[in-house]
């Protein structure tokens, strides 16, 4: 067992070093580069904790999309000339912040160590009701059946975040196309990469959604992969983002939460809000997952692209 413990210790040390470099490093761009590596290392940590679903989500959302979001923001700030600060934080501020953060870390560590061991959490309860949930993957069962209400609210949070980003659009450009006008050499490496990767990405995404019911995967991870692939296609200059005012874009945005809410409301009519009848739970959950994947992919892609900047 010592080899595994050695690996875990090494991984934890590396995670802490990379996190510190990302947070306290000198340059902003270097901090973002370290943050992307940090996201990947956290995904590996989740593999060691046998939380493969979370590893997938962390790899796709944490390392993938958040990295793209930060690089996009850095690039925009560089164009505006505000991507760095002259002086670093003053020394007394550093000492105070170090003291506060040290205190916080110590208090949390002490509380963690004080917790009794042999805690089962809710895994026995999940295992016992898994049969009636219609899926075999316990995490998907919790996400889409036991705590379906949480996931419904969360899909609305994602959608409303996009509406909030759109609400920052100046009046003149409303209904326009998000992001900058990407252009690339038509026979160059970038457009080739933009043509080769999407089919593979599409296959991986559909596989992730389909596998989600029996093994790690699911709507959020698959939606993120689709969003990343779409962003690459746009960056390769092959297609442009849809204008914010386009009708079927709005339909795609609303599809996932809409289907989910419809299932919930139908359940409420029969006296059990968000109740998924055992008889055909699996097809119902899969249809919700596919609808959610479409909406999440579109929402995430537009969320990273930012607010409309160019007239339609």
């Amino acid at each position: 067992m010592t080899a595994a413990l050695l690996f875990d210790a090494g991984l934890c040390l590396l995670v802490l070093v990379v996190a510190f470099s990302a947070v306290a490093g000198r340059g902003l761009f270097g901090a973002i580069a370290f943050f992307i590596i940090y996201g990947m290392l956290i995904a590996l940590a989740w593999l060691r904790l046998e939380g493969v679903d979370v590893a997938l989500a962390e790899a796709a959302i944490g390392a993938g999309l958040t990295g793209m979001l930060l690089i996009g923001a850095w690039s925009m700030l560089k164009q505006l000339g505000v991507s760095g600060l002259p002086g670093g934080p003053s020394v007394p501020l550093r000492i105070a912040a170090g003291a506060v953060s040290g205190l916080v870390a110590l208090a949390l560590a002490a509380t963690v160590l004080a917790l009794p061991d042999g805690r089962e959490g809710l895994s026995p309860a999940v295992a016992e009701s898994l049969g009636r949930s219609g899926v075999d993957n316990p995490v998907t069962a919790v996400l889409l059946n036991f705590r379906a209400y949480d996931t419904l609210l969360e899909s609305v949070v994602l959608l409303i975040a996009l509406i909030a980003v759109w609400s920052l659009t100046p009046r003149a450009v409303w209904g326009g196309v998000p992001g900058l006008a990407q252009h690339a050499r038509s026979d160059g490496v970038l457009s080739m990469f933009g043509r080769l990767l999407p089919p593979l990405g599409l296959v991986v995404a559909i596989y992730l959604v389909w596998a989600g019911s029996s093994q790690p995967g699911g709507a959020f991870q698959a939606g993120t992969v689709l969003a990343a692939v779409w962003l690459l296609v746009v960056m390769a200059g092959l297609y442009d983002e849809p204008p914010a005012s386009s009708r079927n874009l709005r339909l795609a945005l609303v599809a996932g939460p809409g289907v989910f809410l419809a299932v919930g409301a139908v359940g409420a009519a029969f006296g059990v809000f968000m109740g998924i009848p055992e008889g055909f739970a699996k097809p119902l959950i899969l249809s919700i997952e596919f609808a959610l994947t479409v909406s999440i992919a579109v929402t995430l892609a537009l969320l990273v692209a930012g607010r409309p900047r160019r007239p339609a």
Binding site: V189, L190, M192, F193, L196, L197, L200
Partner: peptide, 17 residues
């Protein structure tokens, strides 16, 4: 095999660009 191909494609394209 798909993992290796993807990583190879990504690394080659990015390196060139």
């Amino acid at each position: 095999a798909l993992v290796w191909m993807l990583a190879g494609l990504a690394a080659a394209s990015v390196a060139q660009l």
